[in-house]
Structures are given as C-alpha cells and as structure tokens.
Nucleic acid binder design. Structure first.
Length: 144
DNA sequence: GTTCTAACA
DNA sequence: TGTTAGAA
C-alpha cells in the first residue's frame, strides 16, 4: 500500500507548487517570495542553482498565513511569527477534532450536530457541536 | 514564455 | 516592494 501521511485521504506533503502557482493562490508576489526566502522566513524545497523554486503544502500554508497577517496590518516579522504559531497549533486542533469526532447528524437544511463523544469517563453525558443557521454552539445531552 | 539573480527609480 | 536588465 502507498504511504499516505497521517491517515489522510492522500499525502498532502507530496503536493508541490511552482512559484507561479503560489503567487496566484496566495496573492504574494514572486519578488516577495524571493525576499522572504532571503530573510529565512520561508524555504522552498531543495533546489539546484538557478532552477525554479518549488514549495510544499506546508510552506504554501505558511505563505498564505503570512499574507493574511500582513493584510491585517502586522509587520512582516510579526506576521511570520504569528504564521509559525498557527503552524504549530493547527496539527493539535486537527488531531483533537479528529479524535473526538464521532459522527455528524444533519437534522435539517439549517441544523446539524457533530457528536464529540462522552463528556467524561462517567459516560453519562455527550457533547454535541451544534450548527444552527450558521451559528455554532455546544450542547450537553444526557446519554439514554 | 517563465524564472533566476542583481541592481536601482 | 516593484520593476527591469540580461542570462538560463
């Protein structure tokens, strides 16, 4: 069987983007990408001398996040720090949600609930993530 | 035609 | 940071 990173649908780590694609996807100019690289804020995949740069998924997301913080008014260095922070938090959030995800119940066009499993080891109550008309909330329900 | 490096309005 | 030059 082919190796896919973390049990995902496919190995996102093997998605490669050329500098052109990165500029189109993130809105960051090629000049900026080269400058950020020069400042050691980002690193393309190992490339030889004058060949074109290629970026992996991780770097693409980092670039997109830096851009997001820049557009929010932060300086480049601060934007980079915040992007790095997000990069560290994302996997934790992902793992947590995936580990607690017990199923989704679409109750209507406007309401759905996500079953996050038991509240605690007593297994008497269950935690539901609610999406109602776009509004999110939690509900604790007694286990039948 | 695109990307690279280096330099400069 | 944008833009431009000349080379790859």
């Amino acid at each position: 069987m082919v190796e896919t990173s973390k049990g995902g649908l496919f190995n996102t780590e093997k998605l490669i983007f050329g500098i052109r694609q990165v500029t189109q996807i993130t809105g960051v100019s090629s000049r900026q990408l080269r400058y950020w690289e020069q400042q050691n804020y980002i690193s393309p995949i190992q490339q030889k001398k004058g060949t074109s740069r290629q970026y992996d998924m991780h770097t693409l997301l980092k670039i997109a996040n830096i851009q997001r913080f820049l557009s929010q008014g932060f300086t480049l260095s601060v934007a980079v720090e915040k992007a790095i922070k997000v990069g560290r938090e994302a996997p934790l959030i992902r793992d947590f949600v995936l580990s607690r995800m017990n199923g989704v119940n679409i109750e209507s066009d406007d309401r759905a609930t996500i079953d996050f499993g038991f509240l605690d080891d007593s297994h008497k109550q269950r935690v539901l993530g609610v999406i109602d008309h776009g509004k999110t909330s939690f509900e604790i329900i007694d286990e039948v």
